[in-house]
Simulated scan of single mutants.
Amino acid sequence: MKGLVSFSIVGSAICMFFLVMLNYFLTPTLDWSIYPCIALLLWPLSMYFVYRQNLKQFAFFTSSVFIILLTVINLRETPNLLWVLYALYPLVFWPVFTAFGKKAYTMTAAVIGATTTIIYYALLNVAFSPNYPWVIAIIFAVGWWPLSLYHAKHKSFFSFSIQASIWISAFVIGMNWAFSPSVIWAIYPIFAVVWWPISLYFFSTKRHMTTL
Rank of each mutant, 00 (worst) to 15 (best):
V65M: 04
T71D: 03
L85M: 10
F61M: 07
V72N: 01
Q53T: 12
S64N: 03
L75W: 08
A59K: 05
F60W: 13
F66I: 10
F60H: 06
F58Y: 14
W83E: 10
R76Q: 14
V50Y: 07
F58V: 00
F61K: 03
T62K: 09
Y51M: 10
T78A: 13
R76V: 02
V84T: 12
Q57E: 12
F58I: 00
V50F: 09
A59V: 00
L70Y: 09
F49V: 02
Q53K: 15
Q53V: 09
W83Y: 11
R76S: 12
L69V: 01
L69S: 05
R76C: 00
T78E: 11
R76E: 14
V72G: 00
Y51P: 05
I67G: 02
L55M: 14
Q53D: 14
N54L: 05
L82F: 08
L85Y: 09
S63E: 04
L85V: 05
R76P: 00
V50A: 11
S64F: 15
K56T: 11
R76D: 14
V65K: 03
Y86I: 10
F60C: 06
K56E: 11
S63M: 06
F49P: 03
F66S: 03
N54H: 10
T71R: 01
A59G: 07
Y86A: 12
N80W: 02
Y51Q: 14
S63I: 02
F49Q: 13
S64I: 06
T62Y: 12
